[in-house]
Computed example of a mutant assay.
Amino acid sequence: MVERLNEPDAGWVAVDRYIADKLIGDDPVAALAANAAVGLPDIDVSAAQGKMLHLFAMMAGARRVLEVGTLGGYSTIWLARAVGDGGEVVTLEVDPHHASVARGNVDAAGVGERVDIRVGPAVETLATLDGAFDLIFVDADKPSNVVYLREALTLSRPGTVIVFDNVVREGGVLEADSDDDRIRGTRALFDAVAAEPRLSATAVQTVGAKKWDGFLLAVVGASPDRTES
């Protein structure tokens, strides 16, 4: 998730806790504790968002998932649970230390046999993969968003679900003259998705323990909504 320079709104955090207590169930919090113990940045998705990704994968009937940006494997575990026995999550991580922590976490969560962790820059690793994936989740360096979108499309089929994280950036996405490469990369992503006829897409804002941000959601091969003349 987006880097948090200030504390999130207390009310948002309280609601996230309420949601987690009522609905989340078996949250793999041990992975978060392991991440914190070795100093990984606290930029994972929230519990509610992790469960949302899990449900997206289940709704898509996903058996093969691609994740760009592993960190410590928290979201990876949610996705690996969704693909079930015999399913596969291929996850890409640039930092060998993060990848090592993630390997320990997915193994400890009992889903290690479903997870293939590839180490190296994703812009290079993506070119070595064969499609098609049923769901693709991108939560990596934002300046490369358009590259990740292009590669995701080559690894997709009609019906593939593509999800990008951190697309609101506390409203920063509105800053057309921003010199922040992450905002510029996010705005370029919106432009690229809007110009891609193979995609039907929207974005949703989120607030909570991870502050104000959002997800871009797209489906490959869906016909755009239009009124026939």
Rank of each mutant, 00 (worst) to 15 (best):
D85Q: 14
D85E: 15
G87Y: 02
V89H: 02
V90C: 04
T91N: 04
E93G: 05
V94S: 14
A99G: 11
A102R: 11
R103E: 10
D107K: 14
A109D: 13
G110R: 15
R114N: 14
V115E: 04
R118E: 03
V119I: 15
G120F: 08
G120W: 07
P121K: 05
V123K: 05
V123H: 04
V123M: 04
E124T: 10
T125L: 08
T128Y: 09
L135P: 00
I136R: 02
I136H: 03
F137G: 01
A140C: 07
A140T: 04
D141A: 07
D141R: 04
D141L: 03
P143M: 05
S144Y: 01
S144I: 01
S144E: 05
N145A: 01
V146M: 05
V147Y: 00
Y148R: 00
Y148L: 03
Y148A: 00
L149E: 03
L149R: 00
L149N: 01
L153G: 02
L153V: 02
L153Y: 02
T154H: 12
L155S: 00
R157S: 15
V163T: 04
V163E: 02
D165L: 09
D165E: 14
N166M: 11
R169C: 03
E170D: 14
E170K: 13
G171Y: 03
G171M: 07
G172W: 06
G172N: 08
A176Y: 06
A176E: 13
D177C: 08
D177F: 05
S178I: 08
D179T: 11
D179V: 11
D179Q: 11
D180C: 11
D180E: 14
I183S: 01
R184M: 12
T186N: 13
T186F: 10
A188L: 11
A188F: 13
F190A: 14
D191H: 14
D191Q: 13
D191N: 13
A192K: 02
V193S: 01
A195W: 06
P197G: 09
